[in-house]
């Protein structure tokens, strides 16, 4: 049995809260760029931008980051990970970039994403927003905006499901080998 950690409505509220926190922390939307990691960080980043438009009336640029070319396990893999085009709206020189992902676990994906971001310029600062922080970091990386902290054991799975990608919505905690159904 998979446990529902956040239901459909709760996930929506969590994303809106993250949007408020990001704007509050940045003291407005000046210089703000959202960079969503593919696959699920990007639609979350777009929803954060939507929320900001609703309460601030401002369109914050949203980009997408694919980390395949920056992974630290390319040489260990049997087959090459799929690479998809990233899209960045503008140069990141001097911007406040908020990197967005669904689940923060080992921190390796975020490390790779940071390298990717820096190829687009020199941001003034980079912040990290995640829906779920599940612990078990393997690198010194910490999030600035967290939807929910979920204590897990290393072999459990946390799945953030989004309508745009998965057809349904919610955050689930699953035991090893278990599948969402």
């Amino acid at each position: 049995m998979s446990d529902v950690v956040l239901g459909h409505d709760q996930l929506g509220r969590t994303i809106r809260r993250l949007a408020h926190e990001i704007v509050e922390n940045n003291r407005g939307t000046e210089g703000l760029v959202l960079a969503g990691m593919l696959t699920r960080g990007y639609p979350i980043a777009r929803r954060i931008a939507e929320a900001i438009r609703e309460f601030e009336g401002v369109d914050v640029p949203v980009g997408s980051v694919d980390i395949a070319l920056y992974r630290d396990d390319y040489q260990q893999r049997e087959t090459p990970p799929r690479v998809r085009p990233s899209q960045m709206p503008a140069s990141l020189d001097g911007a406040t970039v908020v990197l967005v992902d669904d689940v923060l676990f080992t921190g390796r994906s975020v490390r790779a994403a940071l390298d990717a971001l820096l190829d687009y310029g020199r941001p003034a600062r980079v912040r990290l927003a995640v829906i779920v922080d599940r612990g078990h970091r393997e690198l010194p990386i910490r999030p600035d905006f967290i939807g929910k902290n979920i204590p897990t054991s290393a072999n459990q799975l946390v799945e953030v499901r989004l309508t745009e990608v998965d057809g349904d919505e919610g955050v689930y905690l699953m035991e090893p080998g278990e599948r969402h159904d």
């Binding site: 990691m37 696959t39 699920r40 980390i67 396990d73 260990q76 893999r77 087959t79 990970p81 799929r82 992902d101 669904d102 689940v103 923060l104 676990f105 080992t106 921190g107 390796r108 994906s109 975020v110 799975l157 946390v158 799945e159 953030v160």
Partner: peptide
Amino acid sequence: MTSQQPTGDMTGLP
């Protein structure tokens, strides 16, 4: 969820 399956295939492709 790339962070959880560092060696798995997360492309969603066959």
